[in-house]
Amino acid sequence: MSEQTVFLYQPYEKHEQHSVLNLEAGEAQQLITEGKAVAVNLGDYGEYRKKAQAVHSDYKRAERKIKQSDNPLHTDEYKRYELDKAYQDYEQQTKALQAEWEQKRKEMQADARRKAARATVHISESDNQTAEQVASRIALNIAGASNAASLTEVVDRASQDVSYLSDAEKTALQSKLAGIISQIEGKADRYGVKVNANKIIQEAQDVRNMDLLAEKVADQLPSSIDVEYRTKNAVKRRRTSTVRGI
């Protein structure tokens, strides 16, 4: 079953907004079609994973060959020696690849930070005016909310209104949200109710400029490429501990 890596523009199931996920291809494509996610490429990560997997496969072949040898000269002691040697070679190669990936990952994250820092969303006077009006309308509606139910309705409507804005209008609105969120929280405390004001922030942050979002993607690059080695090493350690009676 093929998978696809996507970046979430919006929360999905238990996953937060701006998460990077590996999903079944059909599921991923559905989210992309609905405008809730975009396909992303994790750069050199895939190549390093393939290299690590190839090293693991070579080790497994060598291990199998040693264990299955029926050469009478290959005593148990000889096989243990050869197995230890094969594992040491495997470990050395894997650790070298992991070190390379860690350095490459740092470089990719630094590049992404530079790209995000220099990314711009052009905001016109019209965008600012729209954001100002939207913020004023939301604030007025919050002020007019007379009970918990109406406050919840206002927040839901505000979230929906913000979702209709352009990237530039959302960016202009972001600087005006702190007061709105404080206003919502104050009303919620007064009515003794929990209101998810964060949904307004999520909609305002749903700006689909991948240069601006590059750092969020890079921060989620996997830290390791040696999954098979880690699993094998954990099993090896457990066996050693069992033999020693630990």
Rank of each mutant, 00 (worst) to 15 (best):
A39M: 06
A110Q: 15
M108L: 15
A117Y: 03
K216I: 02
E215P: 00
K236P: 00
E100C: 04
A218Y: 03
E185S: 14
D127G: 07
E132P: 00
K187A: 10
E82A: 13
K194A: 06
A116R: 02
D127H: 06
V235P: 00
V6H: 02
V217Y: 01
Y12F: 12
I142P: 01
T120R: 14
E100S: 11
Y59I: 07
F7E: 05
G35E: 05
T120N: 09
Y164T: 15
K199M: 14
V154C: 05
D84L: 08
E13S: 11
K176Y: 07
S223Q: 11
R230D: 12
G35F: 05
D156W: 00
F7P: 02
E215Y: 00
A96M: 11
A143C: 05
V55C: 00
V195L: 01
T231L: 07
D76Y: 02
Q220C: 10
K85P: 06
S57C: 00
A197T: 12
L31A: 09
R49Q: 11
A116L: 08
V20P: 06
L213M: 13
D76A: 09
W101I: 04
T231F: 08
Y9M: 05
S175M: 09
D89N: 13
N209M: 09
A139D: 11
G46P: 00
R118D: 10
P72R: 05
K187D: 03
E107R: 07
Q129T: 14
N128P: 05
L165W: 00
K106I: 08
N196S: 12
